[in-house]
Nucleic acid binder design. Structure first.
Length: 139
DNA sequence: GCCAACGTTGGC
DNA sequence: GCCAACGTTGGC
């Protein structure tokens, strides 16, 4: 299983919105960046990812799961863009801030730390383990 | 709210 | 196919 990180401004679409969708999940639409799209295309059913609040909070707040693999983005006619559907799995008992990630040994190479603008990112198994521990949940 | 970084667009 | 201009993102 691979691991990922989804970034969203909570003003637009936050963890609370994702939670409200429950088991129905929600298309991660609106991505207009090839790298981010390619990451979504690489996702498999059951892959898990972190849910990160950019701008407001700047922290990882929970874990989501891919419940539908990449499919055309219904919010555009442009055939280049597609997206996965994700559902909330569990909230962190303690959110993990960007600042905390920056100083945490083992996370020096994390994409979130080094390339903060990429909206859908890969997370290494080691990073996944460390951040789950920081967030107070089992990996 | 500002601004730097970066990605995309479009003219040539 | 290159590259300048432009728009967007996101941390500060």
């Amino acid at each position: 299983m691979n691991h990922w990180l989804f970034k969203s401004e909570p003003d637009t679409w936050g963890w609370a919105d994702q939670l409200a969708k429950g088991a129905a999940g929600e298309e991660w639409h609106g991505v207009r960046n090839y790298q981010a799209r390619n990451n979504m295309r690489a996702m498999k059913l059951g892959d898990q990812g972190f849910f990160y609040h950019s701008n407001i909070g700047k922290e990882i707040v929970g874990i989501v799961e891919v419940m539908a693999e990449s499919a055309p983005d219904s919010t555009t006619d442009d055939p280049r863009w597609d997206c996965v559907t994700i559902r909330a799995v569990r909230a962190f008992s303690r959110p993990v801030s960007l600042d905390a990630c920056k100083v945490q040994p083992g996370l020096e190479k994390m994409v979130l730390v080094n390339s903060p603008r990429l909206s859908v990112q890969p997370v290494s198994p080691e990073e996944w383990r460390i951040i789950c521990a920081m967030g107070g949940v089992a990996p």
